[in-house]
Protein backbone atom coordinates (compact mmCIF):
# COMPACT_ATOMS: atom_id res chain seq x y z
CA UNK A 1 0.00 0.00 0.00
CA UNK A 2 2.25 2.83 -1.21
CA UNK A 3 1.27 6.30 0.03
CA UNK A 4 0.07 7.27 -3.46
CA UNK A 5 -2.48 4.43 -3.80
CA UNK A 6 -3.61 5.15 -0.24
CA UNK A 7 -4.00 8.84 -1.08
CA UNK A 8 -5.87 7.80 -4.24
CA UNK A 9 -8.38 5.88 -2.15
CA UNK A 10 -8.68 8.81 0.26
CA UNK A 11 -9.27 11.10 -2.74
CA UNK A 12 -11.99 8.84 -4.10
CA UNK A 13 -13.61 8.62 -0.67
CA UNK A 14 -13.49 12.41 -0.29
CA UNK A 15 -15.17 12.87 -3.68
CA UNK A 16 -17.90 10.44 -2.66
CA UNK A 17 -18.35 12.15 0.72
CA UNK A 18 -18.40 15.60 -0.86
CA UNK A 19 -20.97 14.47 -3.44
CA UNK A 20 -23.23 13.19 -0.67
CA UNK A 21 -22.86 16.43 1.28
CA UNK A 22 -23.42 18.63 -1.79
CA UNK A 23 -26.60 16.81 -2.79
CA UNK A 24 -28.17 16.28 0.61
CA UNK A 25 -27.35 19.32 2.70
CA UNK A 26 -29.96 22.05 2.13
CA UNK A 27 -27.96 25.01 3.49
CA UNK A 28 -25.82 26.66 0.79
CA UNK A 29 -22.89 27.32 3.18
CA UNK A 30 -22.69 23.57 3.89
CA UNK A 31 -22.81 22.97 0.15
CA UNK A 32 -19.75 25.19 -0.25
CA UNK A 33 -17.95 23.10 2.36
CA UNK A 34 -18.92 19.94 0.46
CA UNK A 35 -17.79 21.55 -2.80
CA UNK A 36 -14.38 22.27 -1.24
CA UNK A 37 -14.21 18.66 -0.03
CA UNK A 38 -14.81 17.34 -3.56
CA UNK A 39 -12.25 19.86 -4.83
CA UNK A 40 -9.59 18.61 -2.45
CA UNK A 41 -10.46 15.02 -3.43
CA UNK A 42 -9.95 15.88 -7.11
CA UNK A 43 -6.67 17.61 -6.28
CA UNK A 44 -5.57 14.46 -4.44
CA UNK A 45 -6.15 12.52 -7.66
CA UNK A 46 -3.91 15.05 -9.42
CA UNK A 47 -1.45 14.59 -6.52
CA UNK A 48 -1.11 10.84 -6.88
CA UNK A 49 -0.82 11.19 -10.67
CA UNK A 50 2.05 13.60 -10.00
CA UNK A 51 3.65 11.26 -7.48
CA UNK A 52 3.40 8.22 -9.75
CA UNK A 53 4.94 10.37 -12.51
CA UNK A 54 8.22 10.75 -10.59
CA UNK A 55 11.10 10.56 -13.14
CA UNK A 56 14.28 12.28 -14.36
CA UNK A 57 15.42 13.02 -10.82
CA UNK A 58 12.20 14.73 -9.69
CA UNK A 59 10.22 12.88 -6.99
CA UNK A 60 7.05 14.21 -8.69
CA UNK A 61 5.68 15.41 -12.04
CA UNK A 62 5.54 19.23 -11.69
CA UNK A 63 2.75 19.87 -14.25
CA UNK A 64 -0.21 18.37 -12.32
CA UNK A 65 1.04 20.03 -9.13
CA UNK A 66 0.96 23.41 -10.86
CA UNK A 67 -2.58 22.60 -11.95
CA UNK A 68 -3.52 21.82 -8.37
CA UNK A 69 -2.16 25.15 -7.14
CA UNK A 70 -4.17 26.99 -9.80
CA UNK A 71 -7.19 24.85 -8.90
CA UNK A 72 -6.99 25.67 -5.19
CA UNK A 73 -6.89 29.41 -5.89
CA UNK A 74 -9.87 29.14 -8.29
CA UNK A 75 -11.78 27.05 -5.74
CA UNK A 76 -11.18 29.75 -3.12
CA UNK A 77 -12.41 32.46 -5.50
CA UNK A 78 -15.54 30.38 -6.15
CA UNK A 79 -16.19 29.98 -2.42
CA UNK A 80 -15.69 33.72 -1.90
CA UNK A 81 -18.24 34.59 -4.62
CA UNK A 82 -20.72 32.04 -3.29
CA UNK A 83 -20.34 33.34 0.27
CA UNK A 84 -20.86 36.91 -0.91
CA UNK A 85 -24.10 35.88 -2.66
CA UNK A 86 -25.26 33.95 0.42
CA UNK A 87 -24.62 36.84 2.79
CA UNK A 88 -26.37 39.33 0.48
CA UNK A 89 -29.33 36.96 0.12
CA UNK A 90 -29.37 36.63 3.92
CA UNK A 91 -29.49 40.43 4.31
CA UNK A 92 -32.26 40.74 1.71
CA UNK A 93 -34.55 37.89 2.74
CA UNK A 94 -33.44 36.87 6.20
CA UNK A 95 -33.11 33.22 5.20
CA UNK A 96 -30.93 31.41 2.68
CA UNK A 97 -32.55 28.62 0.71
CA UNK A 98 -31.63 27.30 -2.71
CA UNK A 99 -35.03 25.69 -3.31
CA UNK A 100 -38.00 27.44 -1.79
CA UNK A 101 -41.09 25.26 -1.47
CA UNK A 102 -42.12 25.75 -5.11
CA UNK A 103 -38.96 26.49 -7.10
CA UNK A 104 -41.16 27.26 -10.09
CA UNK A 105 -42.40 30.32 -8.19
CA UNK A 106 -42.43 33.20 -10.59
CA UNK A 107 -40.18 36.13 -9.91
CA UNK A 108 -42.04 39.25 -8.76
CA UNK A 109 -44.76 40.42 -11.13
CA UNK A 110 -43.25 43.81 -11.88
CA UNK A 111 -41.32 43.13 -15.16
CA UNK A 112 -38.07 41.25 -14.79
CA UNK A 113 -34.86 43.23 -14.70
CA UNK A 114 -33.96 46.23 -16.85
Amino acid sequence: MTPSTLAGLVGAALVGLGLYGLIVNPQPLRKILAFNLIGSGVFLVFGIVARKGAAAGFPFDPVPQAMVITGIVVAFAASALAVALILRLHEETGQVLLDDENPASLPSEQGAGK
Binding site: P28, L85, I86, L89, E92, T93, L98, P107, S108
Partner: peptide
Protein backbone atom coordinates in the same frame (compact mmCIF):
# COMPACT_ATOMS: atom_id res chain seq x y z
CA UNK B 1 -33.62 41.73 -6.35
CA UNK B 2 -33.87 38.69 -4.02
CA UNK B 3 -35.13 36.22 -6.67
CA UNK B 4 -32.22 37.16 -8.95
CA UNK B 5 -29.81 36.46 -6.09
CA UNK B 6 -31.35 32.98 -5.61
CA UNK B 7 -31.11 32.38 -9.37
CA UNK B 8 -27.46 33.48 -9.40
CA UNK B 9 -26.62 31.30 -6.39
Amino acid sequence: KPETLVAAL
